[in-house]
Design a binder for these strands. Structure first.
Length: 445
RNA sequence: GUCCCGUUCGUCUAGCCAGGCCCAGGACACUGGAUUUUCAUUCCAGUAACAGGGGUUCAAAUCCCCUACGGGACGCCA
């Protein structure tokens, strides 16, 4: 019952108004995310409006990139393209009549005039004060009249943006701080139309990780679609983005989206710009990958391994599952899974030269390998449980530590200096593979 | 150049509005140690910051002013 009352009283309407450019910038994504979070937090409406007044940019491909990016991040919109709504059309290119009628209002009140073929808006010259939900009171005075319709008859951004916000009954304008200086223009227009001002919330910008300035599309890691193609988990990217300019205030960082929605509010947004740090994103992503349910990990990994030629058709499902089960805790991302897991399925796996050098610079390493080879051959029960005490006994017998055996063996059977826990690794690989690989390794060296 | 916004560890941030509990807490990264077993996991420890100056106050990271630095906007782009 509480929800019904909440719905009736709720008037929050926010919008994300991107220009389809053919890529989905991480800064735009974060703006979309904050709008979406605020809508979900308040039970309000999240509108997607496509600002395609620049007709050359309005391509199918550019729209596809936008929709896919939004959906990948889980940012579903309540109104907009493909969703409908009572305030459409949601493409600015289809709203010409609305803009014309608003222009007439300005002409009638003497606030618009023609000059040099374009239409100019006559400013009031007064200081425009806004109560920004993030920054507090901000005052700015517009100095000169500005163009609202180009000489080719099309309206410009400041004009359509305000008209649409009025028409679509937007209550909160949450956007990047790069628009803060534009706001005085917008406020002039709202007032000229006699429309109430929305609440503005100017969120900090995302700065590039190296050098100066805000993140631009050419910077490393600037595009959402790159994270998708590099197999980052969208939940992880979204979680990281939430932390750029906002925090739950209680030292937690990895949070479910439900928890974030509950805690998110405009008052909790920071004022200062945030530098993008892919290392932290990678850490968060790794944490999400390690905590994935095994079935989900399998579902995500199988096509990658198949495509990389690591996994054959009809591979034993139980074996695949147990490989993932022992590997998951050591995984740092999905992208490297084919390389990381190749030796479980193929014999032509690569060898890490550095690890080889490090391990076999000790002259006894080969001897240890020969000693344990004998043990493995006579080992009837090839399970982690049985192998561990056997290797420990062998180490005691030869007055050394188990590490002296583990390192050369791991390298001989996997070509790596690291990987899943040792004894489970032996069990999953199985006696035949382990013995065969040690034998050929010994023969080759 | 003009205007607007900002400034806590290398980075993201907590604390600031309601000054004392902060010789400043957490996380990433880094360094060292532990897991009598390597490791990209896990655990423990360590290094590391209130931009500078002035003021208000018994007391300032927290309030005020100035300077410096950083970011943004100044388009018939969005």
């Amino acid at each position: 019952m509480g929800t019904i009352i909440q719905l009736m009283n709720n008037t929050v309407r926010v919008r994300f108004a991107p220009s389809p450019t053919g890529f989905f910038h991480i800064g735009s994504a974060r703006t979309a995310l904050f709008n979406w979070l605020y809508a979900r937090h308040t039970g309000g409406t999240f509108v997607l409006r496509v600002e395609d007044t620049d007709k050359e940019r309005n391509t199918e491909e550019a729209l596809r990139v936008l929709y896919e990016g939004m959906r990948w991040l889980g940012l579903d919109w309540d109104e907009g393209p493909e969703a409908g709504g009572d305030y459409g059309p949601y493409f600015q290119s289809q709203r010409e009549d609305i803009y014309k009628s608003y222009l007439e209002k300005l002409r009638a009140s003497g606030r618009a005039y023609d000059k040099e073929g374009a239409v100019f808006f006559k400013i009031s010259g007064e200081a425009q004060v806004i109560q920004d939900a993030v920054r507090g009171e901000v005052s700015r005075t517009e100095e000169k009249d500005f163009v609202i319709f180009r000489s080719n008859g099309t309206p410009v951004f400041h004009f359509v943006n305000v008209v649409d916000d009025i028409e679509m009954k937007i209550t909160h304008v949450i956007r990047g701080e790069d628009h803060l200086s534009n706001t005085s223009k917008h406020v002039e227009l709202f007032k000229a139309f006699g429309a109430p001002l929305p609440t503005f919330a100017h969120i900090p910008l995302i700065l590039k990780s190296q050098g100066s300035g805000k993140m631009s599309k050419r910077d490393e890691g600037a595009l959402i679609e790159d994270y998708a193609s590099r197999h980052f988990l969208p939940e992880a990217v979204r979680n990281y983005l939430c932390l750029l300019g906002w925090s739950p205030k209680d030292d937690r960082e990895i949070l479910s989206i439900e928890e974030i929605i509950k805690l998110f509010d405009l008052s909790g947004i920071n004022k200062n710009n945030a530098r993008f740090d892919e290392r932290k994103l990678s850490f968060i992503n790794a944490d999400y990958v390690r905590k994935l349910p095994l079935e989900t990990l399998a579902w995500l990994t199988r096509p990658m391994l198949t495509q990389a030629g690591v996994l054959e058709e009809g591979c034993d499902e139980d074996y695949f599952q147990s490989v993932l089960a022992i590997s998951q805790e050591k995984v740092k991302d999905l992208e490297s899974m084919p390389d990381f897991l190749k030796y479980f399925f193929k014999e032509d796996y690569s060898q890490d030269e550095k690890a080889h050098k490090k391990i076999f610079k000790k002259p006894e390493a080969k001897t240890r390998l020969e000693e344990i080879f004998g043990l493995f051959k006579s080992q009837e029960v090839f399970t982690a449980e049985a192998l561990e005490p056997a290797v420990e006994a062998l180490a005691t017998e030869h007055e050394t530590g188990t590490g002296a055996y583990i390192q050369p063996v791991r390298f001989a059977i996997s070509g790596q200096g690291m990987g899943p826990s040792f004894y489970p690794l032996l069990e999953v690989l199985g006696k035949d593979r382990v013995i065969g690989r040690i034998e050929s390794f010994l023969a080759a060296s």
